[in-house]
Simulated assay, not measured.
Amino acid sequence: MPEYLYSDDSIVVVNKPSGLLSVPGRGEDKQDCLWRRVQQRFPTARIVHRLDQATSGLLILALDAEAHRNLSIQFQQRVPTKRYQAIIAGIPERYSGRVELPLRCDWDNRPRQMVDPVDGKPATTDWECVQSYDDRCRVLLHPITGRSHQLRVHMQALGHPIIGDRFYASEPYITASDRLLLHAEQLGLKHPVSGEWMAFEAPCPF
C-alpha cells in the first residue's frame, strides 16, 4: 500500500512503492494502481502527475477539480521542484553535470523512449554524484522537464544506466538489484488553494 504523508481538503501526498502502477494500464492484470488504492481512502482523488511503475517515491493527488486544475498548470509551467536519488552503473568522470537530449517514444519497442535530435521533445536533467562505490555511484537527479523515462534514458545516454533498469541497462546491472534503484525523494510546490510553498520528502529506501 502507498504511505500517506500529508492530506487536507484539497490534496493528498503519498509515497508510491516500486512495482505499483500510477494509473491503470491495458488489460485486467493492470488495473491495480496507486490512484485506485488512494481512492479507497479518498474517493475524489485525481492523478496530477505520474511515476514509472518501477520508480518509488512522492506523488501528489488532487481532491477536487479546482485543485487538479491548479496543480496541473503548475506542472505544465514547471513550478514544482523535484529531486530523485538513484544508483548508477560505473563512476562518471565528473561529479556533476547537465544532460540536454531530446526524447521521443521508441514506437517499435514501447514503452521504451529514445534520444532523437530531430523529432524528440526537449528534455533536461541536472545530476550530481554524492557517493561512489566499487563499480557504481549514488547520484541526485533534478529533472528540469518531465518526459517519460527521462532520467532513465539520460543516465543510459551518459553511459551510466540506473541499476536494476530492465529497459535501459545491460547485464550484470539489470539483475544487480531486484528493483529499479530510482526514487523520487523530494517534491516542492505551491498549495493549490493558499499558494503557500510546501515541501515534502520521502527518504530513499536503498
Rank of each mutant, 00 (worst) to 15 (best):
P2M: 06
L5R: 12
D8F: 12
V13N: 12
V14M: 07
V14P: 05
N15G: 11
P17K: 04
S18F: 01
G19Q: 00
G25Y: 01
G25N: 08
R26M: 13
Q31H: 06
L34T: 04
R36Q: 13
Q39M: 09
P43C: 07
A45R: 02
H49C: 02
L51W: 04
L51H: 08
A54C: 09
G57H: 14
L58S: 08
I60Q: 09
A62Q: 04
L63G: 08
E66S: 04
E66L: 00
H68N: 04
N70V: 05
L71H: 01
L71R: 03
S72I: 02
S72R: 00
R78D: 14
V79Q: 06
Y84E: 14
A86L: 10
I87C: 11
G90S: 09
I91Q: 14
E93R: 12
E93Q: 07
L101N: 02
L103W: 04
C105N: 08
W107T: 13
N109F: 10
Q113N: 10
V115G: 06
D116L: 10
P117Q: 13
V118A: 14
V118Y: 15
K121F: 12
T125V: 11
W127A: 03
R136H: 12
S148K: 02
H149A: 10
R152D: 06
H154V: 01
M155N: 03
A157C: 08
L158H: 00
H160M: 02
G164N: 06
F167I: 03
S170E: 15
E171K: 07
Y173K: 07
Y173E: 10
I174F: 08
T175A: 15
A176S: 15
A176L: 00
D178V: 08
D178E: 15
D178L: 13
R179Y: 12
H183R: 12
A184Q: 01
Q186M: 09
Q186E: 11
G188P: 01
L189N: 07
L189T: 05
H191P: 06
P192Y: 03
V193N: 11
V193P: 06
S194V: 04
S194C: 07
G195C: 04
E196P: 06
A199I: 08
A202G: 10
A202F: 13
C204H: 15
C204T: 13
C204I: 11
